[in-house]
Amino acid sequence: MPILFAPLNVELQVTKINVPDDTKHHLANLGVLVGAILVVIADLHGNLIIKVKDGRLAINKDVAMKILVA
């Protein structure tokens, strides 16, 4: 499912990222890539704050729609 619909404070594993190459690259640099473990810690009208390793990453709804997790 898209991470947009994922429950809060649960560990999720990234299964697929459907974004253009440059965005995908940027996300990979920040630690968001297939296989990575993410936790959604806040949801502001679809814009999410996610925990990636020890960092906090803010993404907007469009991106959250395209990161698929299980």
Binding site: V19, T23, H26, L27, L30, N47, I49, G55, R56, L57, A58, I59, N60, D62, V63
Partner: peptide, 9 residues
């Protein structure tokens, strides 16, 4: 462009 940004502590 999509919003992707690290939050500093």
């Amino acid at each position: 462009s999509p919003f992707i940004m690290e939050f500093p502590s």
